[in-house]
Each structure stands twice: as structure tokens, then as C-alpha cells.
Design a binder for these strands. Sequence first.
RNA 1: GGGAGCAUAGCUCAGUUGGUUUAGAGCAUCUGCCUUACAAGCAGAGGGUCAUAGGUUCGACUCCUAUUGCUCCCACCA
Length: 879
Amino acid sequence: MDIPAKYNPSLCEDKWYSYWLENKIFHSEPDEREPYSIVIPPPNVTGVLHMGHMMNNTIQDVLVRRARMLGKNACWVPGTDHASIATEAKVVARLKEKGIEKTSLTREQFLEEAWKWKEEHGGIILEQLKKLGASCDWDRTKFTMDPALSRAVINTFVYFYKKGLIYRGIRMVNWDPVGMTAVSDEEVIHKETKSKLYYLRYFISDGGKVGKDYIIIATTRPETIMADAAVCINPNDERYHYLRGKKIFIPLINKEIPIIEDDYVTMDFGTGCLKVTPAHDINDYEIGLRHHLPVLDIIDEHGRLNEKAQILVGEDRFVAREKIVKMLEEAGNLEKIEDYLSPVGHSERTDAVIEPRLSLQWFLKMEVLAQKALKSVEDGKVNLIPDRFTNTYRHWMETVRDWCISRQLWWGQQIPAYYLPNGEFVVEATLDEAFEAAKKIDPNVKKEDLKQDEDVLDTWFSSWLWPISVFDADKPGFPERKANRDLAYYFPTKDLITAPDILFFWVARMIMAADEFMGQEPFTNVYLTGIVRDKLGRKMSKTLGNSPDPLVLIAKYGADAVRIGMLLCSSAGNDVFYDESQVEQGRNFCNKIWNAFRLTRGWEVDENAKPSESAACAVKWFSAKLSKAINQMEDHFSKFRISDATMTIYKLFWDEFCAWYLEAVKPAFGEKIDKVTYTKTIEFFDSLLKLLHPFMPFITEELWQNMEEREKGATIMLQKLPKATEYSEEDITMFEEAAGCVANIRNMRQSKGISPKEKLDLFVKKPFVNSMKPIIEKLANVSKIEEVDAFDTSLQGVNFMVSTTEFFIPVKVDTAAEIAKVTAEIERYTKFLASVKAKLSNEKFVSHAPAQVVELEKKKESDATEKIKSLNELLQRLK
RNA sequence: GGGAGCAUAGCUCAGUUGGUUUAGAGCAUCUGCCUUACAAGCAGAGGGUCAUAGGUUCGACUCCUAUUGCUCCCACCA
């Protein structure tokens, strides 16, 4: 035998992946079969594979491969997301390393750099997915900034603008001073942050001069006092009624501002006095609107104080905070400082502290879109798995605010709004169309006078079209897509596998877009995977350095092992605690499969021999077991219980097929195996490999190809998954009884130090009806099974019971130990019997419980009574 | 502050309309085996008052209430 004893994944993974690619097995074209389509959640184009991707894509691959083997036309569309903020930040950083500032480049020059970066790094993550075995249709690989996809985005913008859902306005937005752009509410992460509450003295104006009296105002942001427009008190706060109509001075700059009254102020928080800074706080902005306060913006786009601040100009807001506190202290305006824990908004992408900032942005009205998207889920047209996410989904959809879709970046789809010299604008997909439209406003306008909006669109404004746009790429029209063959065939997709943290960012918005443009849901099931955490429960992250490199893992253990490791610990919606031992388990499993193959491969077949009795039994039993497992797996898959399905096939292969079946059919040393059993075994093995294939594509292909001579281009990938047949449950229970008997005998051998090689006699009390007796003989190494009415009391030996059948093996025993064991057994059963009897003597139980439950208890009673009786007899004999 | 979820063996989790469960699995642990497919293996064993306290019920891991601990989401008290 020339097969090595250990499976070496590196010898077959690349080989078979190339084979699949060469034979275009992942590629799908519409045909008469039922489609099964999945779109990949597009990873960031500049990203690298992390454990979350591994988990996510393994599950997708399992589903796709399974669908393919069920005879469906499976299509898994891969691609990447341009991720505007993240990518732009990386490009800016790279330029900086070269000593180039973004501001020194033109938009075109910058974009050239960005595309270069994309070409260099964009494919990395997809190449990594190939190592995992992902059976994506690579010919359909898309990028959210591909010309056709970008066109779709622009057309969508124009469409919503003309529908009146997109508007432009000055609003307080979440400003990311590092990314130098506005971000949407969803991109702001609130973190509990340790900060300080500063109590400042504001002196009351005495006829335009700084008076002697002061009030104390608590603030977390002393650096913004220069932008204060008023001090606000609650109208019901009698403590401050004396301030009505008075004015007050801002410390340091001595600017006089009014005292105003508003219900917004909480009397018992801080001092009950609130400094109102309309330009730098969303609430203050709203108070300002109510009281017509001036808005003074003293922080620039970098988060630094500008000249309007008068002091500390050019200082970063946090530096300014430190400095101004000192200045206030020196000036006698600082009362005290308290530690304070408060939620502070951070940018999802850059982690910068968000600065509320007034700016001119584009918004999409969400109310109606959200209502419809909520209905899709509530009506069950989209199933969230697990369904408890429906609650959070509903909450979000009911409280959603308008979506800020403009970003002050260059990397992305530029907003198709064109400004006329007079400040008016038109929204059209192209400059030519815009020119036509502009002429209607101003007949004298020249094309070159039109200036396109500088901003780009939020990345999610392109990814929400993903399940539509990936099929539409060869058609210029959007939303004119009726005639698109691929879209008509593959849309809607079936399942979406993604992480719960982008349920709102992405999933909800895809539902909105699909409803708007396709009039139906973009997918039926949304399977939300857990977040992969380390053993300590921390989220895997680059900064913590606790995320293993998936490629290193694959190199070390093999892709199949990594996949099994991920699958075994993945239950929907629950966080996943990753530990390398799971991958190790996967590797061991590969090895087990490999060695089972080596065994069958090494058998020599005797064409004329008849199957042994034990082999015949094993075949009968295993075919029943196989069918049962197939049914169980189908059930698990229908409920997205992927880890259970994995465990079902894992145990079927290892515990049933290897540990019992192969042992039962294995010919004695030096002997050949009969043809019938051999053929059956290979058939079973073939079925098992097919069932395993979606989980472990590489090793199964390798072994399947080696089982027999295959045609050119043949692959296990396209074989039909075995179907369950009618089977007898009795064959299974009979076998289990026999196996129980074998286990008892093995146990006895071990405790008595009897070698497995030593043949034993086995006596059993009549009647012993079991069709699997030969299994006992072979696997327990029993020379004969003799049925008797009563055991020979003159023989010393060991008794044991399986279910209610009594067995006896004559061997030398330690009588005292045996007595102790039996006594303990009797005690245990007596206790159990007592509890059953108590139940049965309870009239209420007998009258209320269903008949079959009562019957069951009665059976337990009689069984236990029986057992105690024979145990007592045994005890007598021992004595 | 509001909402959701979780708590079962050392670890990770099943337990699917409350009764075939005297609570299961995998891993880990321990014991014995280099048995001619596999020591990445084989054969066995031990290990849980199902977070706590009540309640409903003939019967509760399962349903209800409260408490404790953890996690996540949402939220403009300076």
C-alpha cells in the first residue's frame, strides 16, 4: 500500500481547486433547473480575510455546494465593496508615507492613486477565499465601483431625487474629523467614555459690565464656551428666576450672551444651568432654533479651533480642552472638576470622536421605505434566523431617521447634482442630460459652467443594490432591467449569510431597494452568524492581535479542517468562541476519513466468497443508519442548524461507520473480503463522501477521484446527494442492543484484565431475539452465544444486562467486589422503582397524564422490578 | 435611560408544542492499550442539586414572576 498514513491537505487542495476552475464547475448560466443563488456580503476591497469571513463564507459554501448536489443551478456571486471611507483613509495614509498630502492632488490624480491601490490590493481577499475552497462563480466577480454598478447607483440617486425622496439641506451631522467627512447615524458607535464634568463660573452682567455674582454651569466641553449663544435654565426652576431677562458673560472672552428658558433643561442634573452651543451639539442646535440664537462655528473640519474662537486658534479640540481648563482656573472661573462617565460617539471607520457639525448634506427620506421593509419581515417574506432579530429590526425601522448619504470624500460615486452659476442645481445621470435640464432653467447656460457636486455617496448607497446590480452589470439601464436574463433567473436570491452588525446598514436597506426596484424581497432567508470571539470572549480584532491568520491556519491544518472547526462551533446568532482545538478536531477528522479509505483500499476481494454473517448484519444495519442520518441532516438544514448537520455526519462517519461498521465487516488478518460486502462498503463510502462534500470539499474530492477510474472532468461536486430510503428502525435498535452487549463485554475484559484476543463464552437467558447476534460474536470475540433457561450456578462468572436481557460470562471473578457491585445496582434500581411507584400511585397523575405516559411509567415499573429480581438472584448465587 | 438575549459537565454547546431523558454531545480529564486503516488512534471510566428564590401543574431543564451575573442593540441629560 502506497498511501501515507496521514492526510496531507497541501497535496490536494490547490490541485483540486484548479481542477474545479479549469472545468468551470463553479460557473453558472441560467437554464431550466431551479436556481439557487447567493450573493456574497462583499468584503472591503482592501481588507484581508479574518475569522469572521472564514465562518461566514464557509457556511455559504456549504449551502451552495449542497444546493448544487441537490441538482439545483447554484450560483454564488462574489465581489468586493469599495468601502469609501476605509479605502480612502488607506490611500491617504500611503500617500502620506510618500510625503504627498491629499490636498496637493487634484481629484483625478487622487482617484488614479486609489485605483492603483485597488488593483494592487483589491484581489487579495478573494484569492484568500479560494484557499478556503469557496465555490464562487468567479466569472461573475463584481466590484461596487464597476462601471455598470456605479451607473446603477447614479441612476438610483436620480430616481429617488425625482421621486422627491432625496433632498439637500443644512443639518447637524455626525462629522468625522479624521475621515474628514459626514457619516450616517448608523456609523456612529457610542462608547462609554471616562471624561470630566467641569463646573465653570459665568459672571452675571451688571449693566454691560462683568458683575460680582456668578452662576455655575457644568459642561464636558469647556473648549466650546466661545461658541456659547446663551445660557439656558428651566422655566420652572425657581432657583434661577432672578436671572430672568439678565445677561451673562462667557469667561475668558467676556462676550455677553442672554439667559433663556427652555423645558429641555433638567433641573437636577449638573447645576440646572446649561450653556447653549448651537454649532457643536445637536440638542443645543435645536434649542437654538427654538430661540433664534446665532450659530457660531468655532471648530473646523479637522477638529481644530478656528479664528472665530478668538483664543487657542488652531489647537486641536482635545488639546484646547486641557489648555482652556488651565486658563479658566487661572482666571478664577473654574469651580471644580468631577469625573464623569458618558457615552461619546465614535466613527465606525476611523474611531475618531464624532464632532456634531452643521453642514450641507444630501439626505434620503426613510420613513416610507422603512415601513415597507419592516412589513417584508413581519409578513414572513424575509425570515431572519434566529428570529429574535426581528425585534431589533422592528425597533430600528420604527425609529429610523433620514439617511445622510453624502460623504466629503473622493473615492466613490460622485453625486450627480450639477450646479448652475446662479446656485441652482439639476440632478441628472450624465453631464449631457444635466446640460439639457439646466438650459430649461437658464437658456444661456454653457456646459462648462455646470459644476458637479464634490461629494460622493455613502458606500451603503451602492451596496444596498448588490443583489440586483450584480446580475445587471452588462445592461446599461437601471432600473430598466426587465429584459435582463440573469436577473430574471437568479433574482430573488435564496439565502443571505451575514453578521448581525450590518443588519441595518445593509440587510434592511437591501430589502428597501429590492422592494422599490424589483417589487419583491431580495432573499428569503437571512442567516445571521455570530461574531467570532477568542477564548476570553473578546471580539477578534487586529488591534488586540487575537485573531489568527486564517491562511496560516489553513496551511497548518488544511482548509477542510478549518471549515469543520468553524462549523462545529457555529450556531446561528450566537457568538462563536474560537479555539484552535476545534480546528485540530477537524484535522483529526480528515485523518480519520483518510485512514478509513486506506483500509478499504487495502482489501483484496474474493469474487466467490459469501458474506460473513456479521458483515451481512452490519450492511443491513448501516444502510438503515445512513438513511436515518440523511433524514436528520435534511431536517437540520431546513432549520439552518448547520452545526447540528455537521455533527450528524461527523458522528455517522466516525462513530458508526468507522467504529462499528468497518470493524464488523473487516476480514480477518490475511483474508480477503467477499465481493458483496466489498461492493456495499464502497457504496456506503461513496454516499458518505457525497454527504461530507459540502463541508469538506477537498478531501472528499481527492478520495472520490481515487475510488475508481473517473471520466475526465468528473467531480464529486456535481454528484447527486444520496437520498434516504425506507428503513427498518428495528434493525437499528437490534444493532444497538448487540452493541450494548459488546460494550459490556469489552468493559468486563478491561476490568478483569482479560485480553481482547482471548475468546469467551457467552450465555444469555431465553428468549433472546436479536437479529444482530453475529455482531456480538465478532466484535466481542465470543466463541458462541448459548441460550439457556437459567445460568449454571456452579460456574463463576460475570453477569450483566442490556435492556432487560441477562447475560453471563464464565470467568474468574473477585466475588466480594462483584457482590458490592451488584448490591449497588440493586440499591440504584430500588430507588428508581420507588420513584416510579410513587408516581403511579398518585391518582392525579394516573387520571391526568396521557395514557401513553402512564403506560411508559408502568413499563418502567415492570422493567425495574424484573431487574431487581434477577439482580437479587444473582446476589444469592454469588453468596 | 429603553429594549433584547444568555446562564445546563472543566470548556463549547444540544435539549425542537411540559411526560420514551434516571439530563445528552463534542472537546478536555483519567485508566488501559504501539490490536496488522488511523497514537491526529483504539477500548473504557469519571464528571451536572440544569444561575438563585418563589409560582403554575399530576409532572418543570422546558411555562410564569422576582433576584443575581454576563452579553448585545438602541438612546441628545450638558
